[in-house]
Design a protein around this nucleic acid. Structure first.
Lengths: 242, 242
DNA sequence: TGGCGTTGTCTGGTATATCGGACAATGATC
DNA sequence: GATCATTGTCCGATATACCAGACAACGCCA
């Protein structure tokens, strides 16, 4: 469910600092969402082969990345997971939000998820699948195009039209059912979601699916900077019980 | 529950690559387990002030780290969390292990935790608190001295005596009740745990507490390299029901 | 079996990141 | 108000990381 993008391979002869390359490498792996062959990283990241092999060596030695499989694929390692759960110790939002999502899912029997805006996608931070035999859910860590869901509209509700348009890529405007979402319509939906406590969408990901999304606000009703969080429910329309 | 260590500040005039400094910085924050003032990092990491301020700037800009509070403290950012949950997509062990831990906790009513060996500590990867009014648990992400628990003994069971001794620091041999664990006794416990399916300890962290630990093995009964995983139960002795 | 493309490692040159130290701003103390 | 210690930024020198390109090994294909 994730789109693959390749970083522009500008043949400009500027050296790049190793740290910057590492950050891009991690972002790329996150964007891909699965292990990637080391050999394809130089081209994907627009970096020299020797540089990439050396960075991967350093990062796998430290445990930040791990090599897997027979064809020299690389992905996030357990150290990153360990560091990541440290984040929760100082950030109640994800912990409490996850607990609320679990509770909501049990209450309604439907898939509930905690999402955040990450770059130009929505990232699934926590997910609790519904209990009904037929249900839909996203994979935790996955990144979904914003135009596909009500939560996508809600996450962009506080932005200006030009800010919203800057985040959209042509391939993300195409729904899984191949239908095209008009940019103008999507922008209007986002702006229309402004100030709403709940936003709904129907039949975007597939027929009969509905998405309800609700913003997570900070104190005094303000959105948490940078306005990235929301809670959403994904369910088959036929099974909803209020 | 974490011990604070400072990286040796050797005044050797060797420059250090930025990536290496970043990895040490992340490891230090993980070890500390809470936000740290940026100003104390140079000394803690044995690095020049300008270098550290620059690295922190780059990492906070990218979202890997976040600044918090009024006194310029830094800790892991949401990007690290996001990258970390990606790890789960390709690593069933943590996901299934966490589910098992949850199930075990519900079954027994006691605190259950998934742990791994990380450097010279045991790291709490997942925890599910018991349901009884009085219960003990560790904080996810926290790192606990190995001599304090049965799981510590189990995690080191496959090592040689000298390997075990190399991992022990004097301050970790002191229990929360101020009693000193003899290195020789601890090493004997570890070696004694070899091949066991379950290891128990009583009254280490506090009187009346018991810890049961069980190894997580790979196929063919082998420990998963590098033999880092186990599941443990922490409970008050008076409440145990088999 | 030979040719080809890809992968992974290695090496020396040079562009620049790292560093020490200077300096200004800030807050605490006397 | 002066002094002191600490913090955070800045700058030029230089140690070295980054890079292009060479090379060996490997697998695939005709």
């Amino acid at each position: 469910m994730t789109a693959i993008t390749t970083i522009e391979n500008k043949p400009e002869k500027t050296r790049e600092r190793g740290i910057d390359r590492v950050l891009k490498l991690l972002a790329y792996l996150n964007e891909r969402g699965n292990p990637v062959r080391v050999a394809e990283l130089p081209k994907a990241l627009g970096a020299p082969r020797s540089t990439i092999y050396e960075l991967v060596r350093v990062l796998t030695e430290s445990g930040v990345l791990e090599l897997s499989g027979d064809d020299n694929k690389v992905y996030f390692g357990k150290l990153i997971y360990l560091y990541g759960i440290n984040y929760l110790r100082e950030n109640d939002l994800v912990r409490r939000g996850s607990a609320e999502v679990d509770a909501l899912s049990k209450l309604t029997g439907e898939t509930s998820e905690l999402c955040m805006l990450h770059r130009n996608r929505q990232a699934i931070v926590h997910s609790h699948s519904g209990s009904r035999p037929l249900r839909i859910s996203s994979e935790v860590g996955g990144q979904i195009p914003l135009p596909w869901t009500a939560s996508g509209r809600l996450l962009l509700a506080q932005m200006t039209s030009s800010e919203i348009e800057a985040l959209l890529s042509p391939e993300d405007m195409i729904l899984p059912n191949k239908k095209l979402v008009a940019v103008a319509d999507f922008v209007a939906d986002c702006i229309g979601a402004r100030g709403s406590d709940i936003v709904a969408s129907t039949g975007l990901i597939s027929s009969f699916t509905q998405c309800l999304a609700s913003p997570i606000r900070g104190l005094m009703g303000k959105f948490l900077p940078p306005f990235v969080w929301c809670c959403r429910w994904m369910f088959m329309a036929t099974g909803w019980r209020s």
